[in-house]
């Protein structure tokens, strides 16, 4: 279970006007602005839920994911993931979660994917029997086959994303964080990724938290959405609650963004 209570996070951003003289001035005296990324964020997510975490760019989605996955420490507030505080028990915590960043790869560029997987086996100290079982299952579900023997640099984006998903699941995490997993993918790859995530949730009961700008992802994968804007939770509910009679999901969300002026 994931509990977030009154989580706040601000960043200091150095600002200056354009130009060389301004650059020189800021070298000696730098001006900072404080930007609020999260403003008293509260939510609870139960085991086995699939949650779509949506909001416009800069709303605080990634910051939330980074706090939940132990990367960032919030300024204040309480966060418990299965009873652990991510930034305090980092190592115990991250052994139980999987994270996929759609924009970044975790595979080694120049070696076959299987080599990257074996490194992960050692990083997570996965017992050999479990490793083999998981690898076999993921290979079948994501049709990895020959991809495992290919260097990551020669994979297409769609192929690579399937490998990224597998890489994040080798250690059987209880919770999977997906940060824009379908970004840039073609229609076939998107559908493959979505179907896989749904299946994973059904067969293993893995809790899935997904951020995306693709509303079809939300429709296909999640039962619940949390809308965040300007660092505040604006809406938390079922997909059907927000949809008004037969409208397509993109329009619904656009109307939502407009109504909250975010």
């Amino acid at each position: 279970m994931i509990v977030m209570r009154n989580i706040c996070k601000t960043y200091k951003v150095a600002r200056r006007n354009a130009g060389l003289a301004e650059a020189a001035r800021s070298f000696f005296r730098r001006e900072y602005d404080t930007v609020t990324a999260l403003d008293h964020v509260n939510f609870t997510i139960h085991d086995g839920e699939t949650v779509g975490y949506i909001g416009p760019n800069g709303a605080g989605k990634s910051t939330t994911i980074k706090i939940l996955s132990g990367i960032l420490t919030p300024d204040s507030g309480e966060c418990l993931v299965d009873g652990r505080t991510p930034w305090k028990n980092r190592i115990d915590h991250v052994a139980q979660i999987g994270v996929v960043f759609g924009q970044r790869s975790q595979l080694w560029w120049d070696v076959p994917v299987a080599d990257s997987f074996e490194l992960l086996r050692d990083i997570y100290s996965i017992p050999p029997a479990l490793y083999k079982a998981n690898l076999d299952e993921l290979t079948e579900l994501l049709s990895l086959g020959e991809l495992l023997r290919t260097p990551a640099r020669q994979l297409s984006l769609g192929q690579r994303m399937r490998c990224e998903l597998a890489a994040s699941l080798l250690h059987s995490p209880r919770i999977l964080f997906l940060d824009e997993p379908t970004i840039g993918l073609d229609a076939v790859s998107k559908i493959a990724v979505r179907e896989f995530i749904v299946k994973l949730n059904q067969t293993h009961g893995t809790t899935v938290i997904l951020t995306t700008h693709d509303m079809q992802d939300i429709e296909a994968i999640t039962k619940r959405i949390i809308l965040i804007g300007k660092g505040r939770i604006l809406l938390d509910g079922g997909l059907d609650d927000i949809r008004r009679g037969g409208e397509d999901i993109d329009r619904t969300v656009a109307a939502l963004y407009r109504s909250y002026e975010i």
Binding site: K66, S69, G70, I71, R90, I91, D92, V94, A95, I97, V99, F101, R104, Q106, I123, Y124
Partner: peptide, 18 residues
């Protein structure tokens, strides 16, 4: 800069070692 350190922190190992 490239956010690679984020990945390091999501792994259950010493950050220095990684």
């Amino acid at each position: 800069r490239q956010g690679e350190f984020d990945r390091v922190l999501t792994r259950p190992r010493s950050d220095i070692l990684q």
